[in-house]
Design a protein around this nucleic acid. Structure first.
Lengths: 136, 136
DNA sequence: ACATTAAAGACTCTTAATGTCTGTAATTAA
DNA sequence: TTAATTACAGACATTAAGAGTCTTTAATGT
């Protein structure tokens, strides 16, 4: 049970795009180079983010991607859901109603998700920028 | 990203064993029937629980399994760790030091684990027993 | 010795993830 | 209009892990 590499790449991409100035479009090549990935593979992941409404894409010459400005305050959970879907980590194999074990497992999962929902990309982007200035 | 079926079976087995009286040994056949599994497959899972110190096994005629009495207050997290291991759900694919994304993901994961550690099998066993009496 | 139990190991099958490659669609510039 | 550059979609191959079956070995009581 691990987060997929695709989720990993998506999160790094989203933070990078959040840091970009205003309406600047970033092409898949730049995003792929940043993480040493192939552009075609990353492109698949980016398409999911676009379908999830987290980024906006512009095809054609001078095209690229930018963070969605209609979607305010993107959280970590938003990104994870766009890539991995929103299914529960645990479903009782016995399928009995009101399984007490399932209740516990779901409650714990909710705790994690609540934390993920409270953490915004913009917060991380600001912190990353602050770190950059510190290093100089 | 989902908990394995094996974790599911293990949790149900552990609750069932917790409910049992005192030193009673329960054979793999009974445990497998309870969940409509093959005994040989469940046996593999039970071996992991035994290796993790959560249950004690007695081989041979009249053998079987029982909850470990040297391990006090078994939690949900104990069972999960015995079956799935104790590795993190998220490791940064870029391997850079102090990855801010990784920090967030790990923190959220810790929230879930803290909840799982606070929930004891004995608590669920008591509740399951209380439900049984209510139904009669 | 025999029967009953747990444990170990070999094996098969399925599925999802990972990633590559190719072709199509959309846009800009010449 | 054509060519170049971009995003998008689909087909494909590989691999690893999980799920589960089957057989054999080891341990115990009668």
């Amino acid at each position: 049970m691990k987060y997929s590499n695709a989720t990993n790449y998506a999160l790094h991409t989203m933070v990078y795009l959040t840091i970009q100035e205003g309406e600047k479009l970033v092409g898949v090549q730049e995003l792929a180079d940043m993480q040493r990935l192939s552009p075609t593979y990353l492109s698949k992941i980016l398409t999911k983010l676009a379908k999830g409404g987290l980024i906006e894409s512009t095809p054609g010459a001078k095209g690229g991607y930018k963070i969605s400005r209609t979607k305010h305050e993107i959280s970590f959970l938003d990104v994870i859901n766009a890539i991995e879907g929103d299914t529960s980590l645990f479903d009782c194999t016995l399928h009995h109603e009101g399984c007490l074990i399932e209740n516990v497992m779901r409650e714990a999962e909710e705790n994690m998700k609540t934390e993920l929902k409270s953490k915004l990309l913009i917060d991380i982007a600001r912190e990353a920028e602050a770190r950059q200035f510190k290093g100089k």
